[in-house]
Design a protein around this nucleic acid. Structure first.
Length: 890
DNA sequence: TATAAGGTGTTAGTGA
DNA sequence: TCACTAACACCTT
C-alpha cells in the first residue's frame, strides 16, 4: 500500500482559463481559497499541459498488428471507421475505410425501373449493381438490384420508393462488418492502406480434433466448425482500463442531482486504473475543514489525493488522466457520470474541443477510446442468469459487487454533502475500485466474457455490453447469412409465410403452449433419481432441423411432422438455426467443457476455456427463446411452438415408458423426471430408448437421498446423500419473505436434512412443531424487530407507472417519497404490515406496536405450511384456513 | 429500445 | 359484503 500521500493544493491561478468561469452560487457551498488546510505539501499553481485533450485519435500504422474492438460510422467523414487496439502502446487507433464501401439496399426491381421511380435522381444515389442472393424462405437463388447511396440516411428515403426492399433496415456499420467479414476482438493489420485479418495459426492437431468430433456432420457444419476455431482459441487482448466515479454536491437527500441540468458542483472524482493508479481529486469547499486527524487517515489510505479549489481544473485534470487510458469504465456512466461531466464541463466554460466525452445515440462515448458502462453490462438478462447464475438480483453497484466480489460500497449514515473530506474520499474511492474490479476480477473474467461474446456475435465492445441477448443472436445470424450470400429475410415475410401458432397457452396472455409439468403428490420419498434431457430445446432444434426457413417450407420432399401442433419441418435443407445452435452446443459439449476440466492444461488456459463454454451456454440457452420473441428479427412462432411440442412429446413418452416398466414417476418439469428408486438396468434401458426413439440425450442429473414434495408444481426440497440441499420454489427461499420466517424455514430445513430414513421424519415433525409454536409466541411478544418483519419487494417500473392499481410496496415507496427518500426502478422497498391506514408502512417509518399480527400469522402459515405439507403434517384434520394453528393446538 | 412459457401466492379493484 | 379477476412479484425449467 502506498503510504505516502501526495496531497496537493491547486490554487486558483489568474490564467485566462478561469476568466469566464464564474461558478454559479449555491446555498451552503461557496468556492473559496481561504480554507484552512493543515500543513500539506503545496505545489505552485500554474496550469498543467492539457493540449493532449485536443489531439485526434491516431491513425493505424502500416504493418502493425491490432485487435479490432469496434466498427463505427463517422458522419463527418461519411465513412466506416474501425477502432483498433494497440497492445504494445495501449492506445486505440483508427482505420478509416479505404475500400470505398457504400451504404446500400436490395430490391427486386430491374435497374431501369429505378429511373422511373425517381431513385436515380436522388442527391445521394450512387449507382446500382446486379447481385444474386440465396433466398432461404423459398430455397431459391434470386437476382436483386443493389442500390448504392453516398449516405446511410439516404437508404431510409429510397427504400420507401420501391415496392419491396431487403436488407434496408440494417445499420450501416453492421452492414460494413458483415460485408468485410469482420470479427471484433480478433487481430487485424493494415497493408498498403487496407485492413486485413491476421490469420490465427490453428494447429493441425486442433483441426484434426474438431474434424473428428464433427465427422458425422454435414459439410456446411464442418466448414463452419473449422472457421470458428480462432474465435475460441485466439487469446484475448490484454487491455489497460481506468474506472471513474464522481460525487455531486446535493443539499438534501431528496434532491437527486440532475445530469441533464448539471447545476450542482462535482465535489470529488475517484480514479482506479488497471495499471495500479489510485487517485481521488477533491474540490475544496468553504466551511469544510480538513483536520489533522483526517489528514493522518488519508495518509494511511491506499490512494493519492489531490485537492482543487477550481472545479473546472479538477475536471480538466480528470480528463487528462482518462485520456491516458484507451478504455474507460463506469458504473452507470451512460446515464449519469459522463453526462454530468459533459454538461458540467460545458457549464464551466471548458471549450468543447477539449471535452473528451461525446454524446452518442444510446450512450456516452469518449473521443479517444472505448467506454464500457458496467451497469449496462451487468443489467443484461442473459449475463445475469447464464453467466452469473442469478447471484445478484438488483443491478446497483453494491448488490453486484457484493455478490461477485464479496465487497461492498462504504455504508453511509448521512448524505454525500454532509461527509467530511476523509469520508467523502474514502467513499468515492471505493466505488471506483469496485467498478474496476467488476471488470478485472477472476483474472479479467468479465473482460474475457465480453471478448468471447463479441467474437461470436460480431458486435463491437461498446454495443454488446449495452444490448440484450436477442441483439447478439440477431447479429450473429445476419453475419452468417451474409457470409454465405444468403438473403437476410424481412420479418414480415417470415410471419406471412410460416403461418400462425396451432396451440394455445396454458397461461393467459401467452401466445403458444410451452412445457409439460407433472403434478406431484405431497410427501417424502427416499432414493430418488432425476433423469434430465441434456439441453433439451437446443438438441431438438438440431435433431429436428427447426429453423425459420424449414418450418412449413414450400416444395420439400421429406419432412418431420411435429406432434400435437402438426407443423411440417423440411428435412431436405439444413436450416441456419440448427447449424449455428448445433455448432455451439456440440463445441461446448464435445470440446470446451472437457478442455475446461482438463487438468493437464495450465490454470490460465483452463480458465479461458471455462469462459469459452460459459459464453457458448448463453447463446445456446437463449436460442429457443428468441424464436418466440416478437422483438426478434427472425421471429417465427411456429418454430418456437414446434420446439416445445417436441419437448412435451419426448418427456411424456419417456415417462410413459418408465411407468410401463413399473417405475414410479414422482415428478417432472420440462426436461426432467424424478424416479422413485429405479433399478439401474432400467435406467440404462430408458437412456438407450430415448436415444433410439428421439435422438435425444437423457442422463442421470441428480441422486437424492430423499425429496420432500409439497404437492405443488415447481415446489420441493431435495436432499443429497451428503446432506446438501436443493430448495426449489418454496416461499421460504423467496427474496420478499420476511427474515424471521426465513430463519425458521431454514431451521426446519436443517432438521429435515439429517433424516436418514422415513422414521427420522416422524421425529423431525416434533421438533418442527416446537419451533413453529415458538415463532408464534415470539411474534406476540414483539421479539422480532422491524427489519426482521419486513417484506422486500422490487419496483419493476417507475412509481408513477403503477396506474392500474397500487401494490403495497408502491404505497410504501410513496410514503418514503414524502420524506424525501426517492426510490427508482430496480430498487427494493422494505415494508411491514400494520394495523389501520393503508395497512402498510416502510420500515423506516413504522413502529413495532403498529404491526398487524394477524397478517404475520398468515405469513407463517403459508410459508411453513408448504414445508409441513411435505412432511405430511397436514392430514384431513388440518384442512381449512386454520390448518397450521389447529395442528399446533393438538 | 425485454429470449420463452408454467407456476405459486398476495393484493387491488370491480361488479353483483 | 363477497366472489372473482387482473396485476404484480418472484421462482423454475
Amino acid at each position: 500500500m502506498d503510504k505516502t500521500v501526495k496531497a496537493l493544493i491547486k490554487r486558483v491561478s489568474n490564467s485566462s482559463n478561469n476568466d469566464h468561469t464564474k461558478p454559479p452560487k449555491f446555498k451552503g457551498l461557496v468556492y473559496t481559497n481561504k480554507v484552512k488546510i493543515p500543513s500539506l505539501e503545496i505545489t505552485s499553481s500554474g496550469s498543467r499541459d492539457y493540449s493532449k485533450l485536443l489531439e485526434p485519435m491516431p491513425q493505424a500504422e502500416e504493418g502493425k498488428e491490432y485487435y479490432l474492438l469496434q466498427v463505427v460510422y463517422d458522419g463527418h467523414r461519411n465513412k466506416a471507421v474501425t477502432l483498433l487496439y494497440d497492445t504494445s502502446k495501449h492506445v486505440i487507433v483508427e482505420w478509416v475505410d479505404s475500400y470505398g464501401h457504400k451504404p446500400y439496399f436490395l430490391t427486386d426491381l430491374e435497374p431501369q425501373d429505378l429511373k422511373r421511380l425517381g431513385i436515380t435522381k436522388h442527391k445521394n444515389f450512387a449507382g446500382v449493381s446486379v447481385v444474386y442472393r440465396y433466398d432461404r424462405l423459398h430455397f431459391q437463388l434470386k437476382k436483386f438490384t443493389k442500390v448504392y447511396t453516398t449516405d446511410p440516411l439516404a437508404v431510409r428515403d429510397l427504400r420507401e420508393k420501391v415496392p419491396k426492399a431487403w436488407e434496408a433496415k440494417i445499420r450501416y456499420h453492421d452492414n460494413y462488418t458483415y460485408d468485410m467479414g469482420l470479427v471484433p476482438t480478433l487481430k487485424y493489420t493494415v497493408k498498403n492502406g487496407k485492413l486485413y485479418p491476421v490469420p490465427y495459426k490453428v494447429s493441425s492437431e486442433e483441426v484434426q480434433k474438431v474434424m473428428e468430433a464433427f465427422k458425422e456432420e454435414s459439410d456446411m457444419f464442418k466448414e463452419m466448425a473449422v472457421s470458428w476455431i480462432p474465435i475460441f482459441e485466439a487469446p484475448p487482448p490484454d487491455v489497460k482500463a481506468v474506472a471513474i466515479d464522481i460525487e455531486v454536491y446535493a443539499p438534501t437527500i431528496s434532491k437527486v442531482p440532475n445530469a441533464e441540468k448539471a447545476n450542482l458542483p462535482i465535489i470529488s472524482v475517484a480514479i482506479a486504473g488497471s495499471d495500479g493508479l489510485k487517485k481521488v481529486l477533491v474540490l475544496i469547499r468553504d466551511r469544510l475543514k480538513l483536520t489533522e486527524e483526517q489528514l493522518e487517515m488519508l495518509k494511511q489510505g491506499e490512494y493519492e489525493v489531490e485537492f482543487f479549489d477550481s472545479e473546472r481544473d479538477m475536471i480538466l485534470e480528470l480528463m487528462r488522466i482518462i485520456r491516458e487510458y484507451p478504455i474507460l469504465l463506469t458504473y452507470n456512466g451512460d446515464n449519469f457520470d459522463l453526462e454530468y461531466l459533459y454538461n458540467r464541463a460545458i457549464k464551466l466554460g471548458i471549450p468543447r474541443n477539449m471535452i473528451i466525452f461525446k454524446k452518442g445515440n444510446d450512450r456516452f462515448e469518449i473521443k479517444h477510446g472505448i467506454h464500457i458502462d458496467l451497469y449496462r453490462f451487468y443489467d443484461i438478462a442473459a449475463i445475469k442468469t447464464y453467466a452469473f447464475g442469478n447471484k445478484y438480483k438488483e443491478v446497483n453497484l453494491d448488490a453486484v459487487a457484493g455478490a461477485l466480489l464479496g465487497e461492498h460500497k462504504v455504508q453511509l449514515t448521512k448524505s454525500i454533502s454532509e461527509l467530511n473530506y476523509y469520508e467523502l474520499i474514502h467513499y468515492n474511492f471505493r466505488d471506483a475500485k469496485l467498478t474496476l474490479n467488476l471488470f478485472t476480477f477472476d483474472s479479467h473474467l468479465p473482460w474475457k466474457l465480453m471478448v468471447l461474446v463479441s467474437r461470436i456475435s460480431k458486435l463491437g465492445i461498446e454495443e454488446l455490453t449495452r444490448k440484450q441477448v436477442s441483439a447478439w443472436i440477431r447479429n450473429l445470424f445476419f453475419w452468417e447469412h451474409r457470409r454465405r450470400r444468403f438473403l437476410i429475410p424481412n420479418r414480415e415475410d417470415i410471419i406471412a409465410m410460416k403461418g400462425t401458432v396451432k396451440s394455445s397457452a396454458i397461461i393467459k396472455g401467452k401466445s403458444y403452449q410451452g412445457a409439460f409439468v407433472f403434478e406431484p403428490s405431497a410427501g417424502i420419498f427416499f432414493n430418488v433419481i432425476v433423469l434430465d434431457f441434456a439441453s433439451l430445446y437446443p438438441t431438438i432444434i438440431k435433431q429436428y432441423n427447426i429453423s425459420y426457413e424449414t418450418v412449413n417450407a414450400p416444395g420439400c420432399k421429406e419432412y418431420y411432422e411435429v406432434p400435437e401442433v402438426g407443423h411440417k419441418i423440411c428435412k431436405d435443407k439444413e436450416g441456419v438455426t440448427p447449424l449455428i445452435v448445433g455448432l455451439l452446443r456440440d463445441y461446448r459439449v464435445k470440446i470446451y467443457k472437457k478442455k475446461a476440466k482438463d487438468k493437464s492444461l495450465d490454470d490460465k488456459v483452463r480458465e479461458w476455456y471455462n469462459t469459452v463454454q460459459a459464453a457458448m451456454k448463453v447463446y445456446i440457452n437463449a436460442s429457443y427463446g428468441v424464436l418466440g420473441a416478437e422483438s426478434f428479427e427472425l421471429y417465427c412462432p411456429p418454430a418456437a411452438e414446434s420446439i416445445t411440442a417436441y419437448g412435451r412429446y419426448a418427456i411424456k413418452s419417456t415417462m410413459n415408458y418408465a411407468k410401463k416398466h413399473k417405475i414410479v414417476v414422482l415428478y417432472g418439469d420440462t426436461d426432467s423426471m424424478f424416479l422413485w428408486s429405479p433399478p439401474q438396468e432400467l435406467l440404462d434401458d430408458i437412456i438407450n430408448w430415448v436415444k433410439e426413439n428421439f435422438g435425444l440425450e437423457i442422463e442421470i442429473d441428480k441422486v437424492y437421498r430423499f425429496v420432500a414434495f409439497t404437492g405443488l408444481k415447481k415446489n420441493y426440497v431435495g436432499v443429497y446423500p451428503e446432506g446438501d440441499i436443493d430448495v426449489k420454489g418454496l416461499l421460504g427461499k423467496k427474496r420478499n419473505t420476511p427474515q424471521f420466517v426465513k430463519e425458521a424455514f431454514l431451521k426446519i430445513i436443517e432438521i429435515i436434512r439429517s433424516a436418514q430414513d422415513p422414521r427420522d421424519v416422524v421425529e423431525a415433525r416434533e421438533k418442527v412443531r416446537t419451533l413453529v409454536k415458538e415463532l408464534y409466541t415470539n411474534l406476540r411478544k414483539q421479539y422480532y424487530d422491524l427489519d426482521e418483519l419486513a417484506f422486500h419487494m422490487q419496483l419493476t417500473k417507475p412509481i408513477n407507472a403503477y396506474t392500474k392499481n397500487m401494490p403495497q410496496h408502491v404505497k410504501a415507496a410513496k410514503m418514503l417519497a414524502r420524506f424525501g427518500i426517492q426510490l427508482n426502478t430496480g430498487d427494493v422497498v422494505s415494508f411491514v404490515k400494520v394495523k389501520g391506514g393503508d395497512g402498510v408502512k416502510p420500515v423506516q417509518l413504522a413502529k413495532l406496536p403498529e404491526i398487524d399480527l394477524e397478517k404475520y400469522y398468515e405469513v407463517i402459515e403459508t410459508t411453513l405450511g408448504q414445508l409441513l405439507r411435505a412432511l405430511s403434517l397436514d392430514t384431513a384434520s388440518l384442512s381449512g384456513t386454520t390448518k397450521l394453528l389447529s395442528f399446533l393446538s393438538h
